[in-house]
Amino acid sequence: MVADDRHAKLPGIIVFILADIASFVLFFIVFMAERAKQLDVFVQSGQHVNVTLGLINTLILITSGCLVALAVPSARNGQIILARRFILGALAVGALFAVIKGVEYYQKIQAGLLVDTNLYFTFYYIFTGLHFVHYVVGMTLLTLVYFKIKHQSSGHFLWLHSGALYWHMVDLLWIFIFPLLYFQGAR
């Protein structure tokens, strides 16, 4: 069963994704402008974030995104069992992101670095927090898709395609947040 081909119209969620990335780009510019006013504070604070954990989380999201990117063509070729396996894999790898994020937040709170410590940490918690909300929505969507496509009900491919695009957005946002927040200390 060929549900769709790769040159077909993209789901409407693409407008939302574009608007969402655009608002994050705007937040990044605000962050940079505020950073320029107190460069020393930002650079010093940036030395307290765990770059290794951020790096691992980047690799996790890239891998998870790659698996989701394989689920879409599988379903398009009618290989639903294969598509579900890829989604399950993406969910399993993606779940590690939350574990590492939890460790990271725990370390920050233990070290007394809180949202009101200084403006850098305010941005740190807001950016990573907003991203985490996106992540939770994405994981929920993928879980829903995993069950929805099982019976190949009407619109199952639209759900899978929309969920996959959303998941790539979570990946894209992190790819920009990571250097912005974590590569401050190197100066």
Partner: peptide
Amino acid sequence: MIFACLKAHLIAQYFMELRDAPKPW
């Protein structure tokens, strides 16, 4: 940031398949 931009480009073109989209998304 330059590396981030390149990575984002790859994800958009290949994982999101935007290079195949009918409209120039």
